[in-house]
């Protein structure tokens, strides 16, 4: 019977604000970003330096209290250029593509940061034009926003450091 029946859709827009508590470690980390300072927590058991910092080492289950300074320069450990646009759930708008992404091991940390990586000329409105190829092992550096807010997107993207 369904062949003769019009199939109706019901559109519903989710448009809500959510309030997240950071916890102590993430508060210190976020506050540091506003001063272009990156800090990791180090596990006294295995020595792993964690970004983002968190209260407990996932490997050793030890509480971490030992803060270490991390540089805003690091090494590209993985990369991609995303050509498929994604709807950004924070704004409801499509993120311009293509854009470069990478896993970056910042000097002084043992985990990697996933972030945008500039693959070509200057980044405009979130679009990274095609440029020289990325490769694993490349040196990259954080490009900071002018007006820092104490959030991870104070780092706009990473750019390749010319050797």
């Amino acid at each position: 019977m369904n062949d003769r029946v019009e199939r109706l859709d019901v559109p519903i827009l989710m448009d809500e604000a959510w309030h997240y508590a950071s916890g102590e470690a993430m508060e210190r980390f976020s506050t540091g970003l506003a001063a272009r300072r990156i800090e990791a927590l180090r596990c006294d058991g295995c020595g792993r330096r964690y970004l983002p910092p968190r209260p407990m080492c996932g490997n050793c289950r030890l509480r971490m209290t030992h803060w270490v300074a991390v540089d805003d320069t690091g090494t590209l450990e993985a990369w991609t250029v995303v050509h498929q646009p994604i709807l950004d759930g924070r704004t409801g708008e499509e993120r311009p593509s293509p854009y470069g992404m990478g896993l970056i091991r910042l000097d002084g940390a043992d985990t990697t940061v996933n972030h945008f990586v500039q693959t070509g000329g200057p980044r405009r409105q979130g679009v990274t034009p095609p440029g020289p190829p990325l490769f694993i092992g490349q040196r990259v550096r954080a490009v900071w926003r002018e007006e820092l807010r104490g959030a991870m997107d104070d780092i706009l993207h990473f750019e390749v450091v010319e050797p």
Partner: peptide, 23 residues
């Protein structure tokens, strides 16, 4: 993802897989 860490840059399954496949 984590609103304090990578929500601004996360790219879903496609971006995440591409990163790991590159390795």
């Amino acid at each position: 993802t984590d609103p304090f860490w990578d929500r601004a840059v996360a790219s879903g399954a496609l971006g995440n897989f591409a990163l790991s496949v590159s390795q």
